[in-house]
Protein backbone atom coordinates (compact mmCIF):
# COMPACT_ATOMS: atom_id res chain seq x y z
CA UNK A 1 0.00 0.00 0.00
CA UNK A 2 1.53 3.34 -0.99
CA UNK A 3 1.45 6.48 1.12
CA UNK A 4 -1.16 8.20 -1.00
CA UNK A 5 -3.50 5.26 -0.69
CA UNK A 6 -2.94 5.09 3.07
CA UNK A 7 -3.56 8.84 3.46
CA UNK A 8 -6.71 8.53 1.40
CA UNK A 9 -8.02 5.78 3.62
CA UNK A 10 -7.14 7.70 6.77
CA UNK A 11 -8.99 10.76 5.48
CA UNK A 12 -12.01 8.65 4.64
CA UNK A 13 -12.04 7.09 8.11
CA UNK A 14 -11.60 10.53 9.70
CA UNK A 15 -14.45 11.92 7.65
CA UNK A 16 -16.67 9.04 8.72
CA UNK A 17 -15.76 9.58 12.38
CA UNK A 18 -16.46 13.32 12.14
CA UNK A 19 -19.77 12.55 10.49
CA UNK A 20 -20.65 10.00 13.13
CA UNK A 21 -19.75 12.38 15.98
CA UNK A 22 -21.69 15.22 14.40
CA UNK A 23 -24.71 12.94 13.97
CA UNK A 24 -24.48 11.93 17.60
CA UNK A 25 -24.64 15.55 18.81
CA UNK A 26 -28.41 15.46 18.44
CA UNK A 27 -28.52 13.21 21.49
CA UNK A 28 -27.23 16.06 23.67
CA UNK A 29 -30.26 18.26 23.18
CA UNK A 30 -31.88 19.39 26.40
CA UNK A 31 -35.28 17.90 26.97
CA UNK A 32 -38.02 20.45 26.61
CA UNK A 33 -41.03 20.99 28.80
CA UNK A 34 -44.38 20.57 27.11
CA UNK A 35 -46.66 22.84 29.10
CA UNK A 36 -50.08 24.40 28.80
CA UNK A 37 -51.07 27.72 30.43
CA UNK A 38 -53.29 27.48 33.50
CA UNK A 39 -53.66 31.09 34.56
CA UNK A 40 -51.72 34.31 35.00
CA UNK A 41 -52.12 37.46 37.05
CA UNK A 42 -50.38 40.82 36.90
CA UNK A 43 -49.45 42.62 40.11
CA UNK A 44 -47.47 45.86 40.21
CA UNK A 45 -46.19 45.33 36.65
CA UNK A 46 -45.10 41.78 37.31
CA UNK A 47 -46.96 39.00 35.51
CA UNK A 48 -47.03 35.69 37.35
CA UNK A 49 -47.94 32.75 35.05
CA UNK A 50 -48.85 29.22 36.06
CA UNK A 51 -48.36 26.39 33.62
CA UNK A 52 -48.66 22.62 33.88
CA UNK A 53 -48.33 19.54 31.77
CA UNK A 54 -52.10 18.97 31.85
CA UNK A 55 -55.20 20.64 33.15
CA UNK A 56 -55.07 20.62 36.93
CA UNK A 57 -56.87 17.74 38.58
CA UNK A 58 -57.14 16.20 42.01
CA UNK A 59 -54.08 14.17 42.80
CA UNK A 60 -50.48 15.03 42.06
CA UNK A 61 -49.73 18.00 39.79
CA UNK A 62 -46.41 19.53 38.86
CA UNK A 63 -46.83 23.32 38.77
CA UNK A 64 -44.52 25.55 36.71
CA UNK A 65 -44.25 29.24 37.56
CA UNK A 66 -42.79 32.04 35.51
CA UNK A 67 -42.51 35.69 36.53
CA UNK A 68 -42.11 38.37 33.91
CA UNK A 69 -41.59 42.10 33.98
CA UNK A 70 -42.71 43.26 30.57
CA UNK A 71 -41.13 40.77 28.17
CA UNK A 72 -38.28 39.86 30.51
CA UNK A 73 -38.36 36.80 32.69
CA UNK A 74 -37.07 37.66 36.13
CA UNK A 75 -35.56 35.49 38.81
CA UNK A 76 -36.88 36.51 42.23
CA UNK A 77 -34.91 36.25 45.47
CA UNK A 78 -37.69 34.10 46.85
CA UNK A 79 -41.07 32.76 45.75
CA UNK A 80 -43.60 31.03 47.97
CA UNK A 81 -47.12 29.81 47.44
CA UNK A 82 -50.05 28.67 49.54
CA UNK A 83 -53.00 26.85 47.92
CA UNK A 84 -56.29 27.48 49.69
CA UNK A 85 -59.66 25.89 49.16
CA UNK A 86 -62.40 28.33 50.17
CA UNK A 87 -65.50 26.42 51.19
CA UNK A 88 -67.46 29.46 52.49
CA UNK A 89 -67.80 28.16 56.02
CA UNK A 90 -64.21 26.99 56.21
CA UNK A 91 -61.02 26.84 54.24
CA UNK A 92 -58.13 24.45 54.03
CA UNK A 93 -54.93 23.85 52.19
CA UNK A 94 -53.56 20.71 50.56
CA UNK A 95 -50.24 18.80 50.43
CA UNK A 96 -47.69 20.79 48.43
CA UNK A 97 -44.03 21.74 48.16
CA UNK A 98 -42.64 25.24 47.77
CA UNK A 99 -41.41 26.11 44.25
CA UNK A 100 -37.74 25.84 43.35
CA UNK A 101 -35.83 26.48 40.17
CA UNK A 102 -36.85 23.80 37.70
CA UNK A 103 -34.19 21.23 36.90
CA UNK A 104 -35.07 21.10 33.22
CA UNK A 105 -35.75 24.73 32.38
CA UNK A 106 -34.34 27.26 34.82
CA UNK A 107 -36.63 30.01 33.57
CA UNK A 108 -39.35 28.25 35.57
CA UNK A 109 -39.90 27.61 39.22
CA UNK A 110 -41.68 24.34 39.84
CA UNK A 111 -43.28 22.45 42.68
CA UNK A 112 -45.51 19.47 43.39
CA UNK A 113 -49.03 20.04 44.61
CA UNK A 114 -51.49 17.33 45.57
CA UNK A 115 -55.03 18.66 45.34
CA UNK A 116 -57.33 16.71 47.59
CA UNK A 117 -60.65 17.96 46.22
CA UNK A 118 -61.91 19.45 42.97
CA UNK A 119 -63.23 22.91 42.31
CA UNK A 120 -67.00 23.12 42.17
CA UNK A 121 -70.06 23.89 44.18
CA UNK A 122 -68.31 22.83 47.36
CA UNK A 123 -65.65 25.49 47.01
CA UNK A 124 -62.96 27.04 44.87
CA UNK A 125 -59.17 26.96 44.81
CA UNK A 126 -56.89 29.92 44.97
CA UNK A 127 -53.12 29.91 45.14
CA UNK A 128 -51.69 32.78 47.13
CA UNK A 129 -48.20 33.72 46.10
CA UNK A 130 -45.55 36.03 47.37
CA UNK A 131 -42.14 36.87 45.98
CA UNK A 132 -39.25 39.24 46.58
CA UNK A 133 -37.57 40.80 43.56
CA UNK A 134 -33.82 41.19 43.20
CA UNK A 135 -34.30 44.87 44.08
CA UNK A 136 -35.96 43.88 47.33
CA UNK A 137 -39.56 44.64 46.47
CA UNK A 138 -42.13 42.29 48.07
CA UNK A 139 -44.95 41.39 45.74
CA UNK A 140 -47.95 39.25 46.67
CA UNK A 141 -51.14 38.20 44.96
CA UNK A 142 -53.58 35.42 44.46
CA UNK A 143 -54.40 33.26 41.49
CA UNK A 144 -57.69 31.43 41.13
CA UNK A 145 -57.36 28.00 39.56
CA UNK A 146 -59.70 25.28 38.46
CA UNK A 147 -59.07 21.74 39.65
CA UNK A 148 -60.87 18.95 37.87
CA UNK A 149 -61.98 15.62 39.28
CA UNK A 150 -59.95 12.48 38.69
CA UNK A 151 -59.52 8.97 40.05
CA UNK A 152 -56.01 9.57 41.27
CA UNK A 153 -56.52 10.32 44.94
CA UNK A 154 -58.32 8.43 47.69
CA UNK A 155 -58.44 8.86 51.44
CA UNK A 156 -58.95 6.74 54.49
CA UNK A 157 -58.77 7.30 58.22
CA UNK A 158 -57.64 5.53 61.34
CA UNK A 159 -59.66 4.73 64.42
CA UNK A 160 -58.95 8.18 65.81
CA UNK A 161 -60.36 9.90 62.77
CA UNK A 162 -56.93 10.87 61.43
CA UNK A 163 -57.14 11.19 57.68
CA UNK A 164 -54.64 9.74 55.22
CA UNK A 165 -54.53 10.77 51.57
CA UNK A 166 -53.13 8.25 49.10
CA UNK A 167 -52.28 9.73 45.72
CA UNK A 168 -51.70 7.71 42.56
CA UNK A 169 -48.47 9.34 41.37
CA UNK A 170 -47.56 7.09 38.46
CA UNK A 171 -48.25 5.75 35.93
CA UNK A 172 -50.13 8.89 34.90
CA UNK A 173 -51.27 7.05 31.73
CA UNK A 174 -51.41 3.38 32.66
CA UNK A 175 -50.44 1.32 29.63
CA UNK A 176 -50.24 -2.38 28.79
CA UNK A 177 -46.87 -3.71 29.82
CA UNK A 178 -44.66 -2.80 32.71
CA UNK A 179 -45.24 0.52 34.52
CA UNK A 180 -43.61 2.14 37.52
CA UNK A 181 -46.17 2.15 40.29
CA UNK A 182 -45.74 5.06 42.68
CA UNK A 183 -48.03 6.40 45.38
CA UNK A 184 -47.77 9.45 47.60
CA UNK A 185 -49.13 9.31 51.15
CA UNK A 186 -49.97 12.35 53.24
CA UNK A 187 -51.87 12.84 56.43
CA UNK A 188 -53.78 15.79 57.75
CA UNK A 189 -52.43 17.24 60.97
CA UNK A 190 -54.30 20.55 60.68
CA UNK A 191 -56.42 22.10 57.97
CA UNK A 192 -53.30 23.86 56.72
CA UNK A 193 -50.71 21.18 57.33
CA UNK A 194 -50.52 17.92 55.36
CA UNK A 195 -47.17 16.26 56.06
CA UNK A 196 -45.89 13.26 54.08
CA UNK A 197 -46.12 9.80 55.65
CA UNK A 198 -43.08 7.64 55.01
CA UNK A 199 -43.29 4.99 57.69
CA UNK A 200 -46.42 3.12 56.60
CA UNK A 201 -46.63 -0.25 54.94
CA UNK A 202 -48.58 -0.40 51.70
CA UNK A 203 -50.53 -3.42 50.48
CA UNK A 204 -51.83 -3.29 46.90
CA UNK A 205 -53.77 -5.69 44.72
CA UNK A 206 -54.54 -5.00 41.04
CA UNK A 207 -57.56 -6.74 39.58
CA UNK A 208 -59.51 -6.78 36.35
CA UNK A 209 -63.13 -7.78 36.55
CA UNK A 210 -64.29 -9.49 33.38
CA UNK A 211 -67.97 -9.83 34.14
CA UNK A 212 -69.97 -12.68 35.53
CA UNK A 213 -67.90 -12.73 38.69
CA UNK A 214 -64.74 -13.63 36.84
CA UNK A 215 -61.52 -11.69 36.69
CA UNK A 216 -57.80 -11.84 37.25
CA UNK A 217 -54.84 -9.97 38.64
CA UNK A 218 -51.54 -9.18 36.97
CA UNK A 219 -47.88 -9.38 38.04
CA UNK A 220 -46.74 -6.50 40.28
CA UNK A 221 -44.13 -5.53 42.83
CA UNK A 222 -45.65 -4.06 46.04
CA UNK A 223 -44.62 -0.42 46.58
CA UNK A 224 -42.27 0.33 49.47
CA UNK A 225 -41.51 3.66 51.13
CA UNK A 226 -38.63 5.61 49.58
CA UNK A 227 -38.99 8.85 51.56
CA UNK A 228 -40.93 12.14 51.34
CA UNK A 229 -44.19 10.20 51.25
CA UNK A 230 -43.29 8.25 48.11
CA UNK A 231 -43.96 4.50 47.82
CA UNK A 232 -42.46 2.85 44.75
CA UNK A 233 -43.04 -0.51 43.06
CA UNK A 234 -44.12 -1.59 39.61
CA UNK A 235 -47.09 -3.12 37.87
CA UNK A 236 -47.17 -5.19 34.69
CA UNK A 237 -50.56 -4.82 33.02
CA UNK A 238 -51.36 -7.87 30.98
CA UNK A 239 -54.04 -6.17 28.92
CA UNK A 240 -55.83 -2.90 28.36
CA UNK A 241 -59.23 -2.23 29.85
CA UNK A 242 -60.75 -1.26 33.18
CA UNK A 243 -58.64 -2.14 36.20
CA UNK A 244 -58.92 -1.61 39.92
CA UNK A 245 -56.07 -1.41 42.37
CA UNK A 246 -56.96 -1.89 46.01
CA UNK A 247 -54.65 -0.12 48.46
CA UNK A 248 -54.40 -0.76 52.17
CA UNK A 249 -52.20 1.27 54.50
CA UNK A 250 -50.74 -0.29 57.61
CA UNK A 251 -49.86 2.50 60.05
CA UNK A 252 -48.39 1.56 63.42
CA UNK A 253 -49.67 -2.03 62.99
CA UNK A 254 -53.13 -0.73 62.30
CA UNK A 255 -54.56 -1.71 58.92
CA UNK A 256 -56.72 1.13 57.70
CA UNK A 257 -59.85 0.64 55.60
CA UNK A 258 -58.97 -0.17 51.97
CA UNK A 259 -59.19 2.27 49.09
CA UNK A 260 -59.94 1.21 45.51
CA UNK A 261 -58.55 3.08 42.53
CA UNK A 262 -60.51 2.39 39.36
CA UNK A 263 -58.98 3.41 36.04
CA UNK A 264 -58.48 2.50 32.41
CA UNK A 265 -55.31 1.01 31.03
CA UNK A 266 -54.62 1.87 27.40
CA UNK A 267 -53.21 -0.63 24.91
CA UNK A 268 -50.24 1.54 23.92
Amino acid sequence: MNIQSMLGRLMAVTALLVFAVSCDSSDNNDPELDLIPINSVTVDGYTVSLEATNELEIGANQLFWKIKQGDDTITPQSFTISPIMDMATMSHSTPFDQPETDAIDDSYLSNLAVFIMPSGDMGSWTINFQFTTQSGSDISGEMPINVNSSWKIMNTQDGNGKKYFVTWFEPQRPMSGNNDLTFLVHTRETMMNFPAVSDAEMIVYPYMGMGGGTGHSTPFTPPVATGNGFYEGDINYSMSGLWTTTVELVVENDTLPEMVFEYSVIAK
Binding site: S176, S240, G241, L242, K268
Partner: peptide
Protein backbone atom coordinates in the same frame (compact mmCIF):
# COMPACT_ATOMS: atom_id res chain seq x y z
CA UNK B 1 -62.44 -8.84 24.58
CA UNK B 2 -65.91 -7.37 24.40
CA UNK B 3 -68.00 -8.08 27.45
CA UNK B 4 -71.70 -8.74 27.23
CA UNK B 5 -71.96 -6.45 30.25
CA UNK B 6 -72.06 -2.93 28.77
CA UNK B 7 -70.57 -1.49 31.96
CA UNK B 8 -67.31 -3.33 31.34
CA UNK B 9 -64.80 -1.69 29.06
CA UNK B 10 -63.39 -3.52 26.09
CA UNK B 11 -60.08 -5.18 26.82
CA UNK B 12 -57.23 -5.69 24.40
CA UNK B 13 -54.24 -8.02 24.54
CA UNK B 14 -51.29 -7.94 22.23
Amino acid sequence: MESLDPSIQDMLIY
